[in-house]
């Protein structure tokens, strides 16, 4: 049996303190298998992004158990969480590229976190990843010289260049038009499938739902699976 990439058990989350304390997530339980593409939908304010930041080790887990890549996040030290983040590929709503770096340097920033990749290879690797997202001719451009779709593709290259087992994406198409949005998600989907990475993708965009292996729906902090294969292996 393969270990799940993400195992979430009874996770609840609160914002604020004292009388202003507000529960955002209620007893979330789900798993994501290796290589699975999960799309999470739901109205804004439903807690999708909060769940994504918990999985991404960007927030500390308050209650319940959250295992990502086999590691328990609850009570984990800041250092442990930072180490874990290096094995997750992130794609943000805005591209969040470093404006002072060229496209290939942006991709290389991600490679530098992995000391096992020799420095001599890192530029080649960054450029071949840019080629894979169709930006071979744009590698030396600065982000300000790229279109929105191109920037998002650089961000995908940055997220995937180190073959992460897990890719987290928060509305990657939000800032893009219909055509380039679809393109971007397809590139991400194809590359992740090729590398065997699991994807958790938060979106409002109905046009890309067909790429999902499974769709989960979040409403008012509670999860309802639409296309569930309920814990088939467990």
């Amino acid at each position: 049996m393969l270990q799940p990439i993400i195992a979430i058990e009874n996770v609840s989350h609160y914002f604020g303190a004292g009388r202003l304390r507000k529960q955002i997530l209620f007893d979330i339980t789900t798993i994501v298998e290796p290589g699975e593409v999960v799309i999470m939908t739901g109205p804004s304010g439903s807690g999708k992004t909060t769940l994504l930041t918990l999985i991404g080790a960007l927030r500390s887990t308050q209650s319940g158990s959250l295992k990502v890549l086999g590691q328990e996040l609850r009570g984990g030290s800041e250092n442990k969480l930072v180490e874990l983040r290096r094995n997750i590929g992130y794609i943000f709503q805005a591209h969040n590229l470093l404006n002072s770096l060229r496209a290939w340097q942006n991709v290389q920033m991600s490679i530098e976190l992995h000391s096992e990749i020799p420095a001599s290879e890192s530029r080649d690797r960054a450029e071949s990843m840019l080629e894979a997202v169709g930006l071979a001719d744009w590698a030396t451009q600065y982000p300000s010289e790229l279109s929105g779709g191109q920037k998002q593709r650089v961000a995908i290259a940055r997220a995937l260049v180190c073959n992460p087992k897990l890719v987290l994406a928060d509305e990657p198409t939000a800032a893009l038009d219909k055509k380039s949005g679809r393109d971007v998600v397809e590139i991400m989907h194809d590359l992740a499938k090729k590398q065997g990475s699991a994807i958790v993708l938060v979106t409002h965009d109905n046009r890309i739902l067909d790429l999902a292996d499974r769709i989960i729906h979040m409403e008012d902090g509670r999860l309802s699976s639409l296309d569930v294969t309920p814990l088939a292996n467990g």
């Binding site: 930072v82 983040r85 992130y90 404006n99």
Partner: peptide
């Protein structure tokens, strides 16, 4: 000016 970029780097796993 670079705060968002720094936050991104932190999210990527930079200390």
């Amino acid at each position: 000016d670079h705060l968002a970029e720094y936050a991104t780097l932190k999210a990527m796993g930079y200390k």
